[in-house]
Simulated assay, not measured.
Amino acid sequence: MAITAFQSVTLDGVMQGLGRPDEDTRGDFTHGGWGNGYQDEVSMQFASDGMAEGGALLFGRRTYDDLLGFWTTTPDPNPFTDVLVNTRKYVASRSKDTVLDHPNSVLLAGEAAETVMAVEQDTAEDLTIMGSGEVARALHKAGLIDRYVLQIHPIVLGSGTRLFGADDRTDLVLERSVTTTTGVVIAQYRATRSRRC
């Protein structure tokens, strides 16, 4: 099993509130929707290629509710919704009482790093973390992420929750990079070591 973190970040590493002004206002964040206007055919093709590789998705509960809630209520049919609905989704939550409202969803109740390690024992299926900053940071700190795919947007916000915090150093090897027509650099990195090795 390989775990990939697929994240959109600003040049200064902020990942909070990518899609909508009201998406995530925690900490009085006022820059929500900063990712709008940067999507193009290059980024769509990159995402489509990634989805075609298969595997399961891993979310934190908040991102799961927000992302699935949005894409399953959008009126226009699109392949992204089909993938989200039909793919197995693991949802990390500290509460065993969390209710998962969408099909093909499996609750991982407890601390994210511990529950994901348990999943690794039971399946060879690759996992992709989409958004879900708290989960990504917990797995990063535990050395469980094998690959990082970062969509680095040409914008500096100066505030907001960043993808990486004060964690241990992680050395990465660039495997692939693509620049979109809107200036987004999509960089795929492999972690050179992890704590589970």
Rank of each mutant, 00 (worst) to 15 (best):
A2P: 08
I3D: 00
T4L: 07
T4A: 09
T4H: 06
T4F: 06
T4K: 07
Q7V: 11
Q7Y: 04
Q7N: 07
G17C: 10
T25A: 12
R26K: 12
F29H: 09
G33E: 10
D40N: 08
S43G: 09
M44S: 11
A47Q: 12
D49R: 14
G50D: 13
G50Y: 05
A52I: 07
A52Y: 07
E53I: 00
G54F: 05
G55L: 08
G55S: 11
L58R: 02
F59I: 10
G60C: 14
G60R: 11
G60Y: 12
R61N: 13
R61W: 08
R62K: 15
T63C: 15
Y64F: 15
D66M: 14
L68R: 08
F70Q: 14
W71R: 13
T72H: 11
T73D: 15
P77R: 12
N78R: 13
T81K: 15
V83N: 10
N86F: 03
Y90S: 05
V91R: 03
K96Y: 02
K96T: 12
D97L: 01
D97W: 04
L100I: 07
L100C: 08
L100R: 05
N104T: 03
L108K: 06
A113N: 05
E114R: 02
M117P: 00
V119E: 05
V119C: 05
T123V: 10
E125T: 06
D126L: 00
D126E: 06
T128C: 01
I129C: 02
I129S: 05
G131M: 10
S132W: 03
S132H: 00
G133F: 09
V135N: 01
A138S: 15
L139I: 08
G143C: 04
Y148S: 03
P154I: 04
I155Q: 12
I155A: 09
V156T: 12
G160E: 03
G160R: 05
T161E: 04
R162F: 01
R162E: 08
L163R: 04
F164M: 09
D171C: 07
L172A: 01
L174R: 04
R176Q: 07
V178T: 00
T181C: 00
G183F: 08
G183D: 02
A187F: 00
R190L: 02
A191K: 01
T192C: 05
C197Y: 04
